[in-house]
Simulated scan of single mutants.
Amino acid sequence: MAKTYAIAIVGIGKITEDQHLPCIAKNPRFKLTGLVSQRGVARDGVPSFKTLGELLNSSTTVDAVAICTPPNARHAIAVEAMDAGKDVLLEKPTTATTLETADLVAHAAKTKRVAYATWHSQHNAAVDEAKRLLQGQRLKRLHVEWKEDVKRWHPGQEWIWAPGGFGVFDPTINALSILTKILPGPLFVTSAELITPSNRETPIAGKVSFRSPAAASGAALTAEVDWRQTGPQSWNIDIETESGQKLALREGGSKLSVDGKETVAAPMEEYERIYEHFAELLDKGESDMHYAPLQLVADAFFVGKRVATDAFHW
């Protein structure tokens, strides 16, 4: 019989409420045994603590910890958990900086713990099929359109506008995670515009250009992202190969059309698959900590030009 792992969640916000708690509840490989919430969020029958230290010093059984705090707190929490002999799952983006994530890779190896950097948008059948179709191909055109409503997905969350909060690149990293999985070669940022409200520190929109050794001469590789879109949300990736094949990933990578014909349309079960994969990693005692999407965001900030725009208010 497969082992059931006792798991605690650190950080109880919208994504935890919408995805992590429901997915843990319906996965027989996990049992929720603890919550850590500075705001004191509780669930019937599950003990709640203000800090991870309080949880670790209690009699609560915990095998693994899912870290769902804002990014700037994740490195310290993950180190504390691994030092206490716990395996860790990290919401995306893994940490606030690339070196923090690199350190967690090394720390997991040092402590012999499992560490898993989750990139939920990679866990779609349409993404897997797009990867298969692009193997050995050269890119003629790539365009990402990732536009959504920040007020809908991050209501009142001020941390996203602070340094280390990523701004619009918090959702954009989902598109980048898909690209790092499906493209037949690495992707590099060549330029970026970071469109930033006058009263905020991180961008609300942006434009990014890329290059890749897998691209044909003169290929256009671009992304346009925005957090001001109301109504229907746009999570689209369009790719044309040098051979003329056109791939269209829609609805965050859950649907794929090839040359105008829909070939994959599956329900969005990204977080269900995250926990399925985490159970597999725990069974094997293996980590999965690739972080190329985080590096692409960091490079966009590194080479990006700040462009001022109107103030943002909730």
Rank of each mutant, 00 (worst) to 15 (best):
G185L: 08
S209Y: 09
G185H: 13
T241N: 03
S243C: 06
F210Y: 02
A130P: 02
G244H: 08
V208I: 15
S243Y: 00
K246L: 10
P155S: 13
A130R: 04
E201P: 01
N199M: 12
I239Y: 04
E129T: 13
G185D: 12
A117M: 15
T118V: 15
I239A: 01
G206I: 01
T202H: 03
N174S: 14
H120A: 15
K147H: 15
E193T: 00
T111V: 10
V114L: 08
H143E: 14
I182T: 05
K131S: 06
E158S: 15
H154M: 15
V225S: 03
I173F: 04
R138K: 15
P163A: 12
H143V: 11
F210A: 00
Q229I: 04
L183P: 02
P232Q: 08
P232I: 09
K131L: 10
E240D: 11
Q122E: 13
K181P: 05
R200H: 12
A126R: 02
A192D: 02
G136N: 07
E201W: 02
P184F: 08
E242C: 01
L139T: 01
R228F: 10
Q229H: 07
V189D: 04
S212P: 10
L247P: 01
E193S: 01
W159P: 01
P213F: 14
I204T: 03
P184C: 11
A205F: 05
Q137C: 06
G244Q: 09
V225W: 02
H120R: 13
E193Y: 00
W227N: 07
A162L: 07
I204H: 07
A205T: 07
V189N: 03
P197Q: 06
S198Q: 12
G156C: 09
T180W: 05
A175C: 11
I239Q: 02
P213L: 13
H143D: 14
R228I: 03
E240S: 09
L249N: 00
V127M: 08
R138A: 12
Q233F: 03
G218A: 10
A214S: 13
A192C: 10
V208G: 02
D226C: 09
H143Y: 09
T222D: 10
N174H: 15
L176Y: 09
S212E: 06
D149R: 06
E129G: 05
V150Q: 03
S234W: 11
R152G: 07
S217M: 08
T180K: 04
K246D: 08
E145Q: 14
G136I: 12
L176D: 04
W146I: 02
W161I: 06
S198N: 11
G156S: 09
A223P: 01
I178Q: 05
N236P: 00
R211D: 13
K131N: 12
E129M: 07
D149Q: 08
S121P: 09
R250T: 14
K110Y: 12
R250K: 10
G165W: 01
